[in-house]
Computed example of a mutant assay.
Amino acid sequence: MANTVRMLSTLGLAGAMRSLSSAFETASGIHVDADFAPTLALLKRLRDGEAADLVILTREGLDEMIGEGRVVAGSAADLARSYVGIAVRAGQPHPDIGSEAALRRTLLAARSVAYSRLGASGVYFAQLIARMGIAAEINARATIVEQGFTAERLGSGEADLAVQQISELKQVGGIEVVGPVPHELQTPAVFSAGRMANARHAVAADRLLRYLASPEVVPVLRQSGLEP
């Protein structure tokens, strides 16, 4: 259909994009066919030949796609910044994660920490615990989530703590976000959008891209735990 845009988006923006896609459809009459997955999974799908008009990835992932000629370089737009945070089941005490030493104690005290294997947050967290010298202890009882939201493992009782982008944690009910990992220990993920070089609906994709990069969407991004 000419009035449909096929969008592949990283999970970190799923909450915001569902709301923004709906608003865009109402205003433009263009339907957004959206699919959400971790960036590394999306990169594999795109390299395997999956078709899309617009992609939203981490900035590093988008740059790879531009380098491979799959995304139009001039179309790239940075949409939002996201920090990795920690969540507990609703009603549980909020542990101290305010400093590196406190975070280390909290992670070591947890029965199990849920983190993602394929998402940007999981890659970061694996590097963080290695840098802190506690990777062996944490991974011995970690709950590794192949795909999806780590905070779902709090409700099921599989884990005491969930680690993921704050925007992803906030999409799960029955949990509370304790806060971000101390900012000095992390570099925020930047999520960026671009039009595919072989987009079937390039005009509609460009229109959606302009909307997502406009000041109009800022309140929705903030509400979902992202920084414009």
Rank of each mutant, 00 (worst) to 15 (best):
R195N: 02
A41C: 09
V72R: 02
V190A: 02
R104T: 05
V217I: 10
G67A: 12
Y211F: 15
H201S: 06
A34V: 02
G133T: 10
E176H: 09
A136E: 15
V217S: 02
P95T: 12
F24C: 08
A159Q: 04
I86E: 12
V71R: 01
H183G: 01
I144Y: 04
T58L: 03
P215K: 10
I144D: 06
F24G: 02
H183L: 05
V177W: 08
G98T: 10
L57C: 12
G179F: 08
A87H: 00
S82A: 06
G98P: 04
H183S: 03
A90I: 06
L11V: 04
P182R: 10
D78E: 14
E146L: 03
M65A: 06
G225A: 06
I175Q: 02
I138S: 00
V178N: 05
E64H: 01
M65N: 03
V71H: 01
S156P: 05
V177R: 09
F36G: 01
R104E: 03
V55N: 00
A130V: 07
A135S: 13
L226V: 10
A136G: 15
G174T: 07
R195I: 01
D33S: 11
V190F: 00
R200C: 11
F149S: 12
F149H: 12
A193T: 02
A202D: 01
